[in-house]
């Protein structure tokens, strides 16, 4: 057994998982609170990545793209919620799927018209453009460590916000038992707006963070959308803690599968999901399951 290699792969898995958490935490909240299956979530990830490409292309540092992605994402999320999604909460899932699929087409077409269909690389910030050895023979770029740190920071802030603030506990209540919001007399419209804006901001932040690691290219969010749905199902719909542990688990299984069982790597996370569905149909972290 190649132990240094395994250590490097574990680190890869954790880093991949934390990035997945940023995307899937918004997805699980939107699904849990509003009951909407947002297929356009992967396109939002793509928009964040292209935003980083545009910002750095204008000569501005990548650090400017991160707050821009969060603010722009929150604004876009609010507009989408007020303008479109609010009308679809009571419609059936097929209507919602059609709406969000249409959004994918719109976002991709807009991207194609404005920025073309090319593959573009996004430079790593000069300050972090060096590598740190992690094992014998394998190094990790400082930027990868920075992404790791930002993901952990955002996860920490989310937990604090959800556990320690009034709005946070309202969101949790809404995610776990949507009917409670009405009974407690909470302002459901405000909660919906906040959740949607937050989810969109996180997806776009993830895209901007990932751009220097992945490059930007058309439909780059597709793979992340699918794997994020797996995270949501495994972790339990509506549970941010579930999304966190689910994302780490999926990130590790996916990475280790690609490294050690390449022949079946494409299947590994789906086998895991099927196993979880059989054992705990509501997901690993659903309360009262």
């Amino acid at each position: 057994m190649d132990f240094p290699g395994l250590a490097a792969q574990l680190l890869n898995g954790v880093q991949h998982g934390l990035l997945l958490f940023l995307i899937s935490s918004g997805l699980t909240l939107i699904f849990g609170v509003m009951g909407v299956i947002n297929l356009a979530h992967g396109s939002l990830f793509m928009l964040g990545a292209y935003l980083a490409f545009v910002v750095t292309g204008m000569g501005a540092p990548l650090w400017l793209a991160l707050p821009a992605a969060m603010l722009g994402g929150a604004l876009l999320g609010a507009v989408l919620e007020r303008g479109l999604f609010r009308r679809f909460y009571t419609r059936d899932h097929l209507d919602q799927v059609l709406l969000t699929f249409a959004l994918i087409l719109l976002f991709e077409e807009a991207r194609s018209l404005l920025l073309g269909n090319d593959f573009h690389s996004v430079p790593v910030p000069a300050l972090l453009d060096f590598s740190i050895p992690v094992t014998e023979g394998f190094a990790y770029s400082a930027y990868r460590f920075a992404v790791l740190a930002v993901c952990i920071l955002v996860a920490g802030l989310m937990f604090l916000g959800l556990e320690r603030t009034r709005l946070g506990s309202a969101v949790r209540a809404a995610a776990e038992k949507p009917e409670m919001v009405q009974l407690l007399g909470l302002d459901a419209r405000r909660i919906h707006l906040v959740v949607f804006a937050l989810g969109t901001a996180l997806a776009m932040l993830a895209g901007a963070l990932a751009a220097p690691l992945l490059s930007v290219y058309p439909n780059m969010g597709d793979g992340f959308l699918i794997i994020s749905f797996v995270v949501v199902v495994v972790g339990g719909v509506g549970s941010v803690a579930g999304a966190f542990w689910g994302a780490l688990l999926i990130g590790l299984v996916d990475t280790l599968g690609k490294a050690y069982l390449p022949e079946v790597a494409g299947l590994s996370i789906y086998v895991l999901m099927a196993g979880v569905l059989l054992w705990r149909p509501a997901g690993l972290f659903a309360r009262g399951a």
Partner: peptide, 20 residues
């Protein structure tokens, strides 16, 4: 032979195998 699906760019799981 190390392969990843086209056009994915998450090379890390493949690169980390090379030293071993």
């Amino acid at each position: 032979e190390l392969k990843l699906p086209f056009p994915e760019t998450n090379f890390q799981p493949l690169l980390a195998q090379i030293p071993g």
